[in-house]
Nucleic acid binder design. Sequence first.
DNA 1: TGAAACAGTTCTACACATGAACTATTTGTC
DNA 2: GACAAATAGTTCATGTGTAGAACTGTTTCA
Lengths: 150, 150
Amino acid sequence: MNEEAEHWITRYVDAYLIVTRQISARIKERIAEGLTTDQFLILRLIKAQEQCTSTYLAESVCVGKSSITAIINRLDEAGMIERTRDENDRRLVYLSLSEQGEEVYQLAEKQVKDVISPYLLHFEEEDIEKFITMFEKLAFLMQETGGRTE
Amino acid sequence: MNEEAEHWITRYVDAYLIVTRQISARIKERIAEGLTTDQFLILRLIKAQEQCTSTYLAESVCVGKSSITAIINRLDEAGMIERTRDENDRRLVYLSLSEQGEEVYQLAEKQVKDVISPYLLHFEEEDIEKFITMFEKLAFLMQETGGRTE
DNA sequence: TGAAACAGTTCTACACATGAACTATTTGTC
DNA sequence: GACAAATAGTTCATGTGTAGAACTGTTTCA
C-alpha cells in the first residue's frame, strides 16, 4: 500500500466519521417519535423486498440473525410489521409493513429527505451525480466480493 | 424539494447503508481483539487532539457526555487510556493513549487500512481525489452548520 | 459571597450485537 | 421410507452504546 492510499484512507475515515455521525444525529432528532435509525433502515429494507425474510435482512445489514429477531420483535410489538409463514416451506417467515408501519415509515422517510436535501444545494448537479455514482460502485464492489477482495 | 433531489437521496441512502455496514463488518472481523469500532474511533480522536476532553469527544461524535464516560471507563479498565486532571482548572480531565493503547491502536489502524485499500484499486486516482474532496466538503458543511441548514 | 455555569460522573432504562443452544422444518442420501 | 444434515428462525446470557436526569466538584462573575 502506497502513501497516497494511506492518506486517502485517513481523509476518508475523517470525513466518514463526521458525515455519518452528523446525519445519524440529525435523523435521530427528527424521527424520534417511536422509530430508531436502525428500525427505519430495517423497515426500508422490508418495504423494498418482495417476500423479505430475517436471513435476507441479516445478510443485508451484516449482522447475526438473532439481532434481526430482536429488532423484528420490537417492531412487531409496536404493531409496525406483520409476519407471514410460507405455506410451502414452513420454515420461512415473510415480513411486511402493517398499515401503521407504512404510515410511520412514510413520515420518517420524508423527514430523512428534509434533513439531507438542504446540503445538496451546496453542490453542482454534475458533481452530485458523479459522487453518488462512485459511492454506488463502491457499494456494489463491497456487496459483490463480500469482503473477499480478489 | 424536487424529484431529482429525492432520487439522489434514495440512491445515497441505499449506497450508504451498504458501504457503512460492510466496512464496519469487515473492520469488526479484523480488530476483534479487544477493540470495538466505536472504541477505535474514540482512540483515533483522542490521539489526534492535543488535550482531549470528554466534552470535545461528545461533540465530535454527536453523543451525550454520559455515553463518552461509559466508553472511556471501559477503555480505562482495559488500560488503554490515561486521565489527567488539569492543574489550573480542576474540572477538566485530559485524555490520552497509554503505551498499550497506542500499540493496540496502531495495529487496528493498519488493519483498517488493509481492509479499505484493496477497493481503491478499482477507481481512477483522479476520481478518488474528487470523491474524497466532495465528502470532505459535505463533512465541513455539516460540522459548520451543526444541523442548522441556513 | 452566592448564584449560575460548566466538566464530568453515576444511575437507570433501553436498543443493538454476539454466539451458543434450541425448535421446527426441509432436503438429500442410502 | 428413514434418518442425518442443512436450513430458518428463536431464545438466552452477556457486553456495548445511547439517552436523560440527578449528582459532585470547580470556576466564573455579578
